[in-house]
Write a protein that binds this DNA or RNA. Structure first.
Lengths: 343, 343
DNA sequence: CTGAAAGCGCTAACAC
DNA sequence: GTGTTAGCGCTTTCAG
């Protein structure tokens, strides 16, 4: 290849090659009204022959970049790829492309930087997955660029939301475990410091659903607050297992947390589900792995993603669409980490 | 918030507010030579007061976007986030931001689309992780934008590479197993159809390393070709276990493959490592999980990523830097899926 | 239905 | 050391 890149093919080259004006080329590119079939065909051919590709930067200066930004909180959580699949699938036959922010789960600050970077880069729309930003910040972002927020309960006039019914999800787990005969069912939650987020974050809602369900069964809630990470699950389980009257079942707020729990249980010389039952949340790919086979709550990540993408496209098409909230129902996938408690 | 976004603050606003020219503002933004400390301070203050953020689109039209694109083959493989961490860490204190392509592991076609989308969006540099594109394609991409390729063996004059020494990695596993007393050590590889890729893809190199190491120990190689997926591991193990004289150890070419192997072994009513030892490759997060505890080869993903980012920055600074190849040494992490063979 | 031309926000010559 | 200005490639009025 030549050492210095050859000049990019531009719309002008295409116009000249097709013997039409740049306006016509632009119209063809955007499927806009006002180009004759003949002109359209000539342009298509010129584009193919020259291998023309529109510059997103130039387009961005006039408004659209045909790019959707997705901000994930933590690439390691295997639940998020599911959402992403739903998004890309829904966007497949459109002119839009998806770009991901590296998330990095390094807190609000990092999340804000990534979001800003995406705005600076002219994203046509943003999908924020379980963001930790405060409401005011979300409203501000949504005021700048069409936004769909996944996983935050609570309504907004400026952005759409897609959430899983975490109250129901938590209840499914408690019902399942109680149905197996457990009464000492503990829950490991992600510790929430911010009181404003308390009402919106999925982790908080799950804990709330757990409490409600335990009460409904006449059982006493037992919550350990750590974080939605493997380490958090490990630490939480250590605490629970050290109790004199330890629980017979642990409901981890996320599969990744359950992984840490399983590890702590194994280290304690206990067996699952013989000595203790463990359930997760998210039904991630590794929940299904043979040697793990974790009972979990399935959130239908693909559908979450595909709904979010759909809402976003609507909002991009018309920014004044009234905001929508979609709530999806989870299902329980019982596998082999849950069983009746030991006698 | 106002329903329609307020006009963005531009460099002109900053210049007016700071009582300087746009040139000066631009220079300050780029830390370029030729702005007095006084002017610099005034501009900094104006930027802060107005909340100015440069438009990447406009910058893109003049060359730089301060954006690095990373193309991952499969977001689900927990090895890749490690690489990403290394990249972002190395880029932390620069003006660059990282954006990820959604990969989608849907083959060469999808990979090409993502790469093209990134080029169209004016990425300043690209990091391609274990791409499946043919050499000609990689050369072409690298001819357009500075590129670093991770995981492909084989040199190129136009792009830099960072690879793990897969020959050594495979040898470590064979040495370990042979040292435990195994002699019937089988390997499950990812079947490679393309002869051109055969010499470059990590899977092929691992198989080659396995063969060499077996020969060195005076043992006979026994390879099953499936794919680097859980299903591939499951199928491969099924074949191996059906043999009359079945292997006492299986070296899976990737951790995800080992997961399938463990499942097949469990289904066959055999125990690990009592009846059969299993080793993986990549030392992914789930290899360390308590209930799995898989012996695996650690590739030092962070360092791979950080080296790739460094090379890329060098290449962006000077496109005519001679290309570099960095090879990192893997280490073996022995866990509880490997033990001496049954008597 | 088509074309000419203005201008999006920024950078980099070039003049002062 | 600082300011003026010409584009980068595209979209979008506005005339024809």
């Amino acid at each position: 290849m030549s050492p210095s890149a050859p000049r990019r093919v531009t719309i002008v080259d295409v116009a000249r090659h097709a013997q039409v004006s740049t306006t016509t080329v632009s119209k063809v590119l955007r499927n806009a009204y006002g180009a004759s079939p003949t002109a359209r065909a000539k342009v298509q051919q010129a584009i193919a022959e020259l291998g023309y590709r529109p510059s997103a930067a130039a387009r961005g200066m006039r408004g659209q970049t045909y790019t959707i930004g997705v901000v994930l909180p933590d690439i390691r959580n295997p639940f998020f790829p599911e959402i992403l699949d739903g998004v890309t699938e829904r966007l497949r036959d459109t002119d839009y492309h998806v770009l991901l922010g590296p998330g990095g789960c390094e807190g609000e600050q990092a999340e804000a930087e990534v979001t800003d970077a995406m705005i600076d880069r002219g994203m046509d729309g943003l999908i924020l997955v379980a963001p930790m930003a405060p409401r005011s910040r979300l409203d501000k972002v949504a005021g700048i660029v069409p936004t769909v927020v996944i996983g935050r309960h609570g309504h907004s006039a400026v952005y759409d939301t897609v959430v899983d019914d975490d109250i129901t999800g938590a209840r499914l787990v408690v019902d399942h475990l109680a149905g197996l005969g457990h009464s000492r069912i503990a829950h490991i939650e992600h510790h929430e410091t911010d009181s404003a987020r308390l009402a919106e974050m999925p982790n908080a809602i799950r804990a709330q659903g757990y409490r409600q369900a335990m009460r409904a069964h006449g059982l006493e809630a037992d919550i350990v607050s750590t974080s939605y990470t493997q380490q958090g699950g490990y630490d939480g389980a250590k605490q629970l297992l050290a109790r004199t009257n330890r629980p017979t079942a642990i409901f981890a707020g996320a599969d990744i947390v359950a992984m840490g729990v399983l590890q702590a249980v194994a280290e304690a010389g206990l067996t699952v589900p013989g000595d203790i039952s463990v359930a997760g949340y998210d039904n991630t790919t590794f929940a299904a792995l043979g040697p793990i086979s974790l009972t979990s709550v399935d959130q239908a990540g693909r559908q979450i993603g595909s709904n979010a993408a759909r809402l976003l496209l609507d909002r991009i098409a018309d920014r004044h669409t009234p905001s929508a909230q979609i709530k999806l129902s989870p299902t329980l996938i019982a596998r082999s980490t849950t069983a009746p408690p030991p006698q």
